[in-house]
Nucleic acid binder design. Sequence first.
DNA 1: GGAAAAAATACAATCGGTTGTATTTTTTAT
DNA 2: ATAAAAAATACAACCGATTGTATTTTTTCC
Lengths: 343, 343
Amino acid sequence: MSEEKEITIYDIARHLNISPTTVSRGLKDHPTINIKTRKKIAEAAKQLGYRSNTFASSLRSKRTQTLGVIVPRLNSSFMSSVLAGMENAASREGYNLIIAQSLEQADKEMENVMTMFNKRVDGLLVSLAHSSDVRHFDVFFSKKIPVIFFDRVAPHPDSTSIIIDNFTAAYQVTRHLIMQGHKRIMHLGGNMLLNVYSERLRGYKQALQDHKLHFDEKLVITGNLTEECGTDVAKQLLKLKPKDRPEAVCCANDTSAVYCMIALKNAGVNIPEDIAFAGFNNDPISRVIEPNLTTVNYPGYNMGQAAVTSLANHLNGDTNITDTNTIVLRSELIIRASSGKRK
Amino acid sequence: MSEEKEITIYDIARHLNISPTTVSRGLKDHPTINIKTRKKIAEAAKQLGYRSNTFASSLRSKRTQTLGVIVPRLNSSFMSSVLAGMENAASREGYNLIIAQSLEQADKEMENVMTMFNKRVDGLLVSLAHSSDVRHFDVFFSKKIPVIFFDRVAPHPDSTSIIIDNFTAAYQVTRHLIMQGHKRIMHLGGNMLLNVYSERLRGYKQALQDHKLHFDEKLVITGNLTEECGTDVAKQLLKLKPKDRPEAVCCANDTSAVYCMIALKNAGVNIPEDIAFAGFNNDPISRVIEPNLTTVNYPGYNMGQAAVTSLANHLNGDTNITDTNTIVLRSELIIRASSGKRK
DNA sequence: GGAAAAAATACAATCGGTTGTATTTTTTAT
DNA sequence: ATAAAAAATACAACCGATTGTATTTTTTCC
């Protein structure tokens, strides 16, 4: 092979006997450069095997064409859809993604924020570890680097949030269960400091209230919504006498719902005849469990795309994101067998 | 807020009345700089709110502390585990990840390769779209930038592959099915140009041969292993008279196995009594389907960690990866109900 | 105490594009 | 044909850290 030394715009300039400035501008189709010259430059660049040096470029232009992504966990079905959507939009818009996970830990998140800051990302996309405190993003805000929160968001005057209407979604789920004839409905929720879970609880409550059903605090359980969490809840339910058990369980995600169902089924409980179930997310497992799980379709891929697209538009100056407070994506209730009528 | 202008090493130098060189070396604990001076520099840096400019640094040092990752698809359970493992190791080793997906398309992969190349990643981690041709990685090889293939790999003298022993794993699955009394065993495989699927087919064949079972070409189906693919195979099986159906199906992933099972169950076929099943990957859905799916545990998280760790060690000069041809991770057969004995 | 060795610091070039402004070339209008 | 306007190109400073070498300061040792 040849290709030992890197080709720079200076090499191209010398080769064509023009100035590096013209080459630089020519390569990015600057209008003041004659079309013919641009063509010559492009050809020479290809012929010599030129590749642009993004550092030199970023050093001067102060833009990196890179977006930072910080998420609680990478390995969930939902998050992988989000990332796929993000990657798709980013690649279309000419951006790269740097991805890091906070593992739900605030200090890890803070560290990630600083790394992204030092890497000079052009913008940041975040699903929060804890939404209570977002002061560690101030380094971004004070430098006017745009930050978009998605899914797990926190209100902040300088950032945009991309969410679904968790309140309404949970309201619809609960109302559906009520319509099916269930009265004592349990809510299995997550960390109530996170908007997604507190909103879902609120929707649940509101639905009960609107249908004149008593809200019983004992019927609200919060957990980490993992597989174990679902199994534990099942154990608790099994401890109760059948008649004391809730008639339906409205879970804040599919994982906990599914593993709770599995444990109950193994103990001989019939779903939905003895206890009905509903979940959240439309995870693949919701269509494998028997009976199939009623759930809320959570458009992860679209959310990822929307987040990146908004950010890119803002960075390109097409729209100003600071005017946009919140983008709410459409979600929908998917009714399946698990929420069937009571026997 | 204050923080309008960026602080550089020149500002620190001026502030302490020393040279920028000393600041630069001091900041990275260069041994020729007096300990006391280093301390002073660190303090001044903190006080002034200095953040290093990675471009300026990379421009000169020609290292980016960034690794490129190219995968066929981001949104699969397996890949999200891999990424989680990669992110974990990368963050530990002080590297960032730039992630892109090829969507199984060779041209998209080529494009990604060039982007990564231009972004000057220090190394590349790739699971291939098609393993037939890897010439588009030559830009990396000729510049001696390390490339690691994982999962979907292609042999190349200048790169390391990280895989599991697909041959043996498939052999064990097939042998297990044989031991359970199944004789006519179907193999549902993927694109045979990819090492993972061709090796699995090979393992299947070898197991048949070692147990004196006839290999029937008609019992090998290849598809894209998606949900639809599984459903389609079920339809084909249902067209056959029950006695003509295979006694077991050995699938190259869990998704196709599970959706095939679902379709058969809906048609009244009993699993495993009428047809037994085995999959590959240990996807979450394999533990939700009833009966639970016998499968091969595919250590995605470990694979991701191993890939990044090897690459980082190589880049740090701790080990030389070019000596390592292949790293084989342990996988294991997980026996569940779907592969039960024949009635 | 002074020369030699070692340690610490400084100089200055460099990495490769970008960009405001100046200069040259070409086109337009009179 | 020539002045004015427009288009195209070139100059030169700059972005901020790194690094080989030179210089200064400190330490060591006879």
